[in-house]
Amino acid sequence: MDLLPVILTIITASTPLLLAATGELITEKSGVLNLGVEGMMLIGAIAAFATAVSTGSALLAILAGAFSGALVASIFAVLTLIFLANQVATGLALTIFGVGLSALIGSNFVGVALEPLPKLNVDGLSTIPILGKILFNHDVLVYLSFGMIFLVGWFLSKTRAGLILRAVGESHDSAHALGYSIITVRYLAVIFGGFMSGLGGSYLSLVYTPLWAENMTAGRGWIALALVVFGTWRAGRVAFGAYLFGTITILQLHVQGWGINIASQFMTMLPYIATIVVLVLISRDKGRIRMNAPQCIGKPFHPSK
C-alpha cells in the first residue's frame, strides 16, 4: 500500500488538535486552566465558515475564526481573572455557551457547501517526489500549526517574555512581588488560547471537512486539552502527542478496513489507551514532570492575598 496518502491523512487529522493544544499550552503555562476549548473551537469553526461563505476569502475566514475564538476566550478571562470565578466551572460553562451560540449562528449555514482552501504550493518544491508532497503540499493552516508550536516552544524556553509567563504560572505571588502584572499576563495567555482554538475550529470547517454542522468538533477540544497534560506542558511533547493521537486514530481505521476480527469499539478505543500508556511511561520520572507543570494552575490570583 502507498504510505504517502496515509501520512497526509494523519497530518490532516492531527492539525486541529495541535492548533488548539498549542493555545491551551500557553494558557496553562500562565497558570490558567481553560476547559472551554471545545466551545471556542466551535465558535471559531462557524465564524470561519460563515465568513468564507459570505466573502469567499480564505484569509478573512481564518482571521474571523481565530479572532472570534479570542473574543469568547475574553469572556472567560474577564470572569476568571477579574471576577475570580472558578476556572474549571467557567471553562465548562464556556463550552455549553459555545455549543449553543455556534448552533444558533450556524442554523443558516446547514447544508451549504464550500470550496476547500487553496493549497499553499511552494513552486518547484512540492513536485519533489514523496518529500515534496509530504512537506510542501498543504494548506496554510498546517504550516501555521507547525510554526506556532515551534514558536511557542522557543518563546517559553528562550525569551524573557516566556520566562515571565512561566513565572506567573509557577508562583503568582512571587511574580507579583517582582512587579509583574499577573492579570495582564494571564489575560493575554487566555486570549492567545482562544485565538489558537479558533484557528483549530477554522481548520475543521474550512479544510478538514468544508461544511458546517452542529457540534462538528465532536470532542476534539477535549482531546486537545488532554494533549497538553500528555505533553507535560512542553511544546515538543504536545506536538508528539497530537501526532501520536492522530496517527493511531487513522491507523485503526486502516486496520479495520483490512478486515480484522476485533470488535470495532475496541479499535476506536486505541488512541485513548495509547495516550494513557505513553503518559504513564513518560511520567515515571517524577522530577521532570514537576518542573514543567505550572504550580499555580487553576488557582485564582488576588493581590491582597
Binding site: M1, D2, P5, V6, T9, T12, A13, P16, L204, Y208, T209, L211, A213, N215, M216, A218, G219, R220, T249, I250, L253, H254, Q256, G257, W258, G259, S264, Q265, M267, T268
Partner: peptide
Amino acid sequence: INVVWVNTWYDPGKEGDAAKALIDQ
C-alpha cells in the same frame, strides 16, 4: 466491500478519515 466502523453517527472529520483510509486501500 470493506467496512470501517466509526462508532458514531456524527463526526464529519472521522467519517472523512474513514473514507480516506478506504480509498487508500
